[in-house]
Amino acid sequence: MKPVQFLIEWFKHFAYESQRLFIFSGRMVASLYGRPFYVSETFEQMYLIGVGSLFLVVLTGISAGQGMALQFSNELADFGSKNYLGRIMAIAIIRELGPVLTGVMVAARVASGITAEIGSMKSSKQLDAMVAFGIDPIKKLAAPRLIALIVMVPVLTIVCDVIAIVGGWMIAIFISHITSLTYWTAVIDRLNFGNLFIGIAKPFVFAFVIGFISCYKGFTAEGGTKGVGRATTESVVIASITILIANFIVTKVVYSFLRGYF
């Protein structure tokens, strides 16, 4: 196949898949409204996503926070500005690193699980069985997972932010020899509306991204076990890339509208 032809085919496929994903996402959002509400399934998913990802997020937060604090404290020392460490940590963690690292970690852990579970249910005709029993599989399977993600990704992001900033504080007092008061005063100084808003807006967007992509890939998985495996890999890759792209877009949009609040 010629490169131009290949590109045309790729764009056609991309447009077709994007259109299907968009329609599926609309159906997922619509399924959030109206009875029945699968409350126990939603709480179960919140537990699986939230508690299940906690260790990973804590580990990511502490290592990212400490690593960043160590590097910044060395650089800032050259300018005699070590006291600004808390300020830089708060901005970098709350605005960028916390949401993105949590989003990517949850995408890796949760998106794969959701796609694999729904995909194997489809492969073994369990989704057809649900429809035969008058149950909407999107409402039963996708909606609880989406709600759980919308609740738990922001919570996990806050946990990651706190752990990362605490990790930075440990570096500040034990290695950089900055007082706790100086560090925390600088951190609290940057907890303004703009930083907190962008820090919470991003995980909400990422939750939708992970939910839409992982469920879509599960519901459209084809080709038996091999197909489910492929869908799972694609789910993680696409969700992670989309999170990075969405991160830039959210940052740009929020800066455009809330410039005066930072």
């Binding site: 073994s124 005709k125 369990q126 057809d128 069985a129 429809v131 035969a132 008058g134």
Partner: peptide, 19 residues
């Protein structure tokens, strides 16, 4: 369609039980 399905029972190939 949902009402019609209520009058139909289906035994899927390999059972399709919820595992």
């Amino acid at each position: 369609l949902r009402e019609i399905r209520k009058r139909i029972g289906m035994v899927f190939q390999d059972g399709a039980l919820f595992d």
